[in-house]
Design a protein around this nucleic acid. Structure first.
Lengths: 127, 127, 127, 127
DNA sequence: GTGGTCTAGACCACC
DNA sequence: GTGGTCTAGACCACA
């Protein structure tokens, strides 16, 4: 997996997990890959994955069954959605709109960009 | 001035300066506030303003007349626009659309937020 | 059986066994349930029960008659009491009193909690 | 500083910080020791202190002023109290009372232990 | 096997 | 100087 420079890797992995959950690929009580497995497959340090998993437990998106592994919590969908939504509303949207204003762009101007974006990242969900 | 947590302060100050330039409040050859003046008025560390001014010189938005002060360059408008546009296209838009996809939002859904945003931050200075 | 998160499961099962012994429900030379039986009834991994039984043998609360099963030792009552007492004096009490100090609580303040606690867990087996 | 074996070091350091706050030694807006300073004085790895500070920020007991340092938040007292209280009620009290019951102890029996404890740890707060 | 804690040390952006 | 991220690797208790 490739990572953007703008966001810590462990949070990008958190988004990756949330994507799996929102796409229903990983449902409630699904046992997610172990720290070591995911670390190897994403080519990062196990500590980094650990940090992601810790973060998501705290958000009640994952839960731990001691000695067994980590599982998708029953409220995972709801909580993952809330997490991404908060992030979007509080952090991304204001910056985005602010720049749009300064550039003199209107909502209508986004259409063309949006379509272009979706073309370029059609692989998006799967890795 | 209050700062968002998501962006380095010196870049937020850079945006503040760009805004002045794009709004034609500060035109070519305008002598901008000294590091100290701006630092005091924005309540930040002078080093931080210094960094902003260095950054904008490097982008050829400001230029330094030694011993006199910093001035708005003749290409400032063009360069400020280019800077914001690059930032928008390369960084903000991809992240923004990516999250929109995950949340299942469409462009149309943004309308209401956009309007609300413009209401809340109509002046742009204090918040 | 449900387990608290703060204590290893195998130790919670050890407490469960000690309770049986201290309440005289299981007396000296009583043949206790097999690893498999108890594992099924408590819905845990047999390895976990195994570990409990090893632990209690080491404390001379249980003893093993090879090929037959595990039995309550003749000193079980005394040893179970000693085990719980040590645990209480060395580990639980210092932590407990330390927190009480930080919270500014006095012994008298515990009364109400103690009564409430006893109401909620009067039976002790299922919760 | 010496650490108990029963609790991760980073949480023991969190308690240490909470103690400072509850004892009013560190008040709101007090700048706490830097990660490196505290790591040296407690003889632990900076990462461990980092983890404590992260934990306490998330509990809104500390807040970060970028590039400057970490400070005691205005709600620190309230939040530190809540943190310790929750821990006490949910985790320590049930275990404590359960053992007391098994040992046949009553609240009244604690008095003598409590007095003895306070004698032995009179140095308690200061380190 | 699992998650979790800790150390050591590098590197970074930011103020 | 500050906090923060990441890697590498050791070690642990638990199931």
């Amino acid at each position: 997996m490739e990572f953007r420079e703008t966001l810590p890797i462990y949070l990008q992995i958190a988004e990756y997990v949330c994507e799996k959950i929102l796409s229903k690929e990983w449902k409630a009580d699904f046992r997610i890959p172990s720290v070591r497995e995911l670390a190897i497959s994403l080519e990062v340090n196990p500590n980094t994955v650990m940090r992601t998993y810790e973060f998501l437990q705290q958000k009640e998106i994952l839960f731990n069954q001691r000695g067994v592994g980590l599982f998708v919590s029953s409220d995972a969908y709801k909580n993952a959605l809330a997490y991404l939504k908060d992030k979007f509303m509080d952090r991304e949207m204001p910056i985005f709109f602010r720049t749009m204003n300064m550039l003199g762009l209107e909502i209508e101007d986004l259409d063309i960009f949006y379509k272009k974006y979706n073309r370029n990242s059609s692989s998006g969900s799967k890795q």
